[in-house]
Amino acid sequence: MTSTSVIDELKKSQILELLEQGKRVDGRALDEPRKLMIEINAIPKANGSARVRLGDSEVICGVKIQPDRPFPDMGDKGIFICTAELLPLSHPSVETGPPGPDVIELARVVDRGIRESHMIDLSQLVIAKNKSVVGVFADNVVVDYDGNLFDACAYATTAAILSSKMPKWEMKDDVPTLVEGGESSVPVTTIPVSVTMGKIGNYIIVDPNGDEWDSMDARITITTDSNGNICALQKGGIGGFTFDEVIKCGEISVKVGSKIREKLKQAKEGGQ
């Protein structure tokens, strides 16, 4: 994220030299994401939560579930809202105050991946049609930065939703009232997984770390669902992709995504 700091030129040229030999600065294969660690229920007081470390990028996502008024034109649907924030302790270049365009894009791309995959069945989150629905709020905070926050936030959000316990409400005297002991899981239809790829020279690399992020010409984030379909996408950066590259990125996102989906499932099982 952010135009962080200036990468030193020596490192930048080393990154490209290594790619010409089919290697990466940290020894990974071109289509290999970094080590992913998922801790479920890191914030026990939230309805659901996950602490995710992707390489040295670390994100905490907390899910709060509470009754809310539906959007005017969507009285038969619950609400899902996803935010992301770069905490100032995550990197010296991060400033406090309202989020900049980079951070807003981050939050929206993560939100879109969850929303467009229809991960959460929002039609099951209605307490009283047109009056009261259940709202699922997923708030991501970035604690440490080392590139590719798109995937780190997406995995944290997905893991936090999967781990969530949803209370139950019923209308009493026109007010949503908590039903004791009515907890259930959030109704989930699929597990979306985003895979972010960077382009440096003519090379496509999966899950760029901070140095690669600062060196790349363009990036693409592709979210796939459990059926292996592509459901959301975002190209970024000032460079461009060829048709062939875009197709290849689609294939990589399905292949790499399916492995990460297994990890997300395992993390959920482990957290139960």
Binding site: G62, Q66, E85
Partner: peptide, 16 residues
């Protein structure tokens, strides 16, 4: 010094 609470840190979701 900046003291800041995450939206999910308290019972009722906190405004950021």
């Amino acid at each position: 010094v900046r003291y800041h609470m995450e939206p999910f840190s308290v019972t009722e979701r906190k405004n950021p």
